[in-house]
Amino acid sequence: MSSQLPNLHKELIRAFTSHPSDLAATGKLLARLKIVLIDTDLLFPQPSSNPKELVVARDILEIGAFWSIRTRDVPSFDRYFSQLQTFYNDFNSVLPPSEREYPIRGLNLIRLLIQNRIADFHTTLESLPLPADELLNNPFIKHPVNLERWLMEGSYSKVWNAREEAPAEEYKFFVDSLMGTIRNEIASCEEAAYESLPLKDAATLLFFKTQSELLAFAKQRDWQVNLTQETITFTHKSEEKMEIPKDKLIANNLAYARELEQIV
């Protein structure tokens, strides 16, 4: 079976690197290759495995990861990435470094960012095998790190402007969902910070090009649009009545009484 591996691998590279790359063929080849990898025990590498074969296996998985992004299949990217982690973390002393390692790690970071898994984002960032000040010298890592910082600060226009500066082709696939994330963020900020906003300004703030897009978005978020005055009014939820948490107070007081009883 292992004799199949080099041929299929070559075929995969050909299908993947052709312009435009043949996504359907790549997908089929990947499925077949995965079976071969399982047969040759390379999918879950053992310390006894041959390093050369491991490099091939890593290459296949990396292509798989890129392919998942191009076909917009994020769960599949997730799977490929977790398989690759073994190669990156545990075999980094045995294998030569891969040039695709950091692009893929960066993509994973962006994925976490878009899914709003900020805690995971930071955990992953900490476990990168790079010293902290070099993070910003690596273009693939710098991009997600900057995005996260701007998002946290609220410099949304910087995020918007950075969307075209992606260090690798695949990063652009995430742009759309990233924009969705930002718009929702901005919208929630606007709800809190403004009483009303002219339609034109709202469109620029939310990076909408046409008014119809904005109106659809406003409807989705339940904003009151006044078309004659061309303004959006935000309803405020802050004037809620404050309730006295009776149950909690009673429970607390009973607990104190019990504890005091024990002490005295």
């Binding site: 809190a192 002219p198 703030l205």
Partner: peptide
């Protein structure tokens, strides 16, 4: 870096409850 940024940042600060206030865009 820019006024535009400032507007977003202030908006976020208001939403996060850091400050109490309003932005008057006009």
């Amino acid at each position: 870096d820019s006024e535009e940024d400032a507007e977003y940042i202030v908006g976020k600060a208001i939403r996060d409850g850091v400050i109490e206030g309003r932005i008057v865009h006009e």
